[in-house]
Simulated scan of single mutants.
Amino acid sequence: MIYVVIIFLWVALLLYLVMGGADFGAGIIEMFTSNKNKSRTRKIMYNAIGPIWEANHMWLIIAIVILFVGFPVIYATMSTYLHIPLTVMLMGIIARGTALTFRNYDAVHDNMQKIYNKIFVYSSFITPLFLGIIAGSAVSGRVDPQATNFMDAYMYSWLNWFSVAIGFFTVALCGFLAAIYLIGEANDDIERKSFIRKARLMNIAAVIAGSAVFIASVKENIPLVQWVFGNIIGIAAVSAATVSLILLWYLISKGKRFIIRVLAGFQMTMILLTTTYKHYPNIIILKNGGHLSLIEDQGAEKAIQSLGIALLVGSIFILPALFYLVWSFQQKPDGESEVESH
């Protein structure tokens, strides 16, 4: 049953990266959109993310519950030594959702709408930034349970070049995902070309940020190159992601809207597979050379059994409901968005 739980954890993280990433990326795209085009971009954005934006954080909640119930030592370590970036990320999620609601449903439309807009776009940037920082910190070997001062214990565990580089890489990936999804919602060639340009820029930004990640890993003696290229799975995943990226750009020119979304999600899957396979089952690498493992540091056997059964049974209800949610939104007339743009 432990492997069922681990699979659910990995899939939950993947779905949050793909769906939540596109959601955050919509705000990032809005940040880099000119003022005269922002209103139209927002309307298209709502059509794209409307079916899933309220359900996205379900995957994060599932991942947190799995760690809390099934891997309490890992959960306690992360929430202790990475509590600062975790808090910033959670505050970003709250601020973003609140701003999105108030800027669309506020009874009075005044200058506060400008503040809501700024909160929305900035929190859309900050949240994936710190999500990536947390992921990078977990494997950076900077978490130090033996630290004797505040800075070593709670700041340098995440405030390093490698973790920050992964944070910006995550931001670029989210922007790229959103741009690809928004291409499929564009109703004319001008809008479509605009989102293609944004996708191209985010793709370039992801390449630059990804290069920075590798440079930082070498500088800080993190064996990222070995993790990615030191095994057949990593090489195959990188190759598949590269081929799919080339195919994606080819199909964009052919107007294949659905398949480019699938390919973008496939690339995120390959990236996550590449970065997690080699050091599995170690989920946190400690500064003292130790690690926390999903196998060695699992919770009580009864807890794992109960958690596995709950996840299997719950998926029977959650997944059909999610598919119905997406389907129901797709039945709306063309051009109608979930919420009105302001």
Rank of each mutant, 00 (worst) to 15 (best):
G132L: 03
F329V: 04
A12E: 03
L100K: 06
I246R: 09
Y154D: 03
I232D: 13
L60A: 13
L292R: 02
L286Q: 02
A135G: 05
V65G: 12
Y81W: 10
W59V: 02
S337M: 03
D152H: 10
W53I: 06
A95R: 07
N117W: 05
N117E: 09
G234C: 10
A300W: 00
G70F: 05
V69K: 00
T77Q: 10
D152G: 11
I28N: 00
Y280W: 14
R42C: 00
G234W: 04
D106Y: 12
V143W: 01
G299W: 07
R42Q: 05
G289C: 08
M89L: 15
L201F: 13
A63M: 11
Q226F: 13
A321I: 10
T33Q: 06
K302S: 13
E301W: 11
D188S: 12
G335K: 03
V164I: 15
A199R: 06
G184V: 11
V243C: 12
I180L: 07
V11W: 03
I29E: 01
A264P: 01
K332Q: 13
L273V: 14
T242A: 15
Y75L: 09
L286C: 02
K302F: 11
F125Q: 04
A107R: 13
E340A: 08
N203A: 05
Y3K: 09
E220R: 08
F24G: 02
V207M: 14
A237G: 08
A76P: 07
L319R: 06
I271Q: 00
Y122K: 02
I235H: 09
I44G: 00
D334W: 06
T101Q: 00
F258P: 02
W158Y: 15
V243Y: 15
S124Y: 04
K36W: 10
S341N: 03
T274L: 04
A178H: 12
I119E: 04
M45L: 05
G175T: 14
E220Q: 15
P223D: 08
N282I: 05
I196Y: 12
A147S: 08
Q146Y: 13
L272A: 06
W161M: 13
S194A: 13
V218I: 15
M19P: 01
G21H: 04
N203V: 00
R42K: 07
I84N: 04
G132I: 03
G141M: 04
I126A: 03
M1F: 10
I235V: 15
